[in-house]
Simulated scan of single mutants.
Amino acid sequence: MSKKVFGCIILLFHITISVFAGDVDTLIVHSNAMNKDIKNVVITPDGYSKKSDTYSVVYLLHGAGGDYKTWLKVAPKLKEYSDFYNVIIVCPDGERTSWYLDSPIDSTYKYETYVSKELIASVDEKYNTKKEAKGRAISGLSMGGHGALYLAFRHTDIWGAAASMSGGVDLRPYGLRWEIQKRLGSITEYPKYWEENSVINLVHLISDKKLTFQIDCGTEDFFYPDNKRLHEKLIERKIPHDYTERPGKHNTDYWRNSIKYQLLFFNDFFNNNSTKS
């Protein structure tokens, strides 16, 4: 075989790979609600094509102090997971300490609107997605764990599955931490805002709704007592859910391990609903 022919074969191979391989992209979405552009990581699986099948989407929310690139550092194998489960993964930027809320005291923070409406619409427009709840899941770590359950509980029409790892599911014990008071005001002055925006107080929203969800927290995590109380409240109200607790702290090692199981959890949900109308 001549070097010229061999070179052509190699070139063709690389062209083929570039056509069928997925990507890790930065998607910039303009938020009309906040009048600014927001960056998001979007991971597409190998073989992704806008002309073929539609894809389920998993949204992953970062914790306090993080940004849209955090999940790539926490779980470097995200691209492999996207390939293996054949899903699109979206990692939004939650502005360090937005808590994924529409702040009742600061109109410049409307991250519930951004993630649940503006980002969803943009991803569905630009990518070949399943545009219904049974094709969407959301999870997150710490502040993002709060955000994932908060958004899913409040928008069961948007997400069919949700999960939280080490989530801050009750904001009230942390009145002076992680800039929560900048989003909700002082807990002594605005206790109602803290009550209304804590996940543990939102379980009534899903008592008669279909939402597949999981709670995961390490037993050495400072959020562990809150997660356990949420689990017990759900049991008391007979609301189906998965609950995982195991030795672990509030750290990257725990989250890197958790995401593997949560993506399997979501994959089962997608497969179980793929043939349902």
Rank of each mutant, 00 (worst) to 15 (best):
D226W: 02
H204S: 13
D170E: 02
H231F: 02
V169W: 03
T156I: 00
E232P: 10
H231A: 05
R136F: 03
I239V: 01
E220K: 14
V203A: 06
K192Q: 15
H241D: 07
L211W: 04
A162T: 13
E189A: 13
P247L: 01
Y174T: 12
A163S: 13
W194I: 10
F223A: 08
S139I: 07
R246N: 07
S164Q: 01
F153R: 11
K192P: 08
I239Q: 08
P247D: 12
R172S: 12
H155Y: 11
I138M: 01
K209Q: 13
F222E: 03
S166M: 04
K238A: 07
R229Q: 14
W178P: 05
N227E: 10
L205A: 04
D242T: 15
L234E: 02
D208Q: 01
E179P: 08
I158L: 02
L211F: 01
Y190V: 11
D157L: 10
E196D: 08
I158C: 04
D170F: 00
L211Q: 01
D170K: 09
A161S: 11
L205F: 12
N197P: 12
A137K: 08
C217E: 05
D216I: 06
I187S: 12
G144D: 03
A137T: 00
V203I: 15
G147D: 04
G167A: 13
I239R: 00
R177N: 11
A163N: 04
E189V: 15
L141F: 12
R172A: 04
Y190A: 13
I138V: 01
D170S: 09
L151S: 11
S186E: 14
A161H: 02
G144W: 00
L149K: 08
C217Y: 02
P247E: 01
R172Q: 09
W159C: 05
L230F: 09
T212K: 09
L171A: 11
T219Q: 13
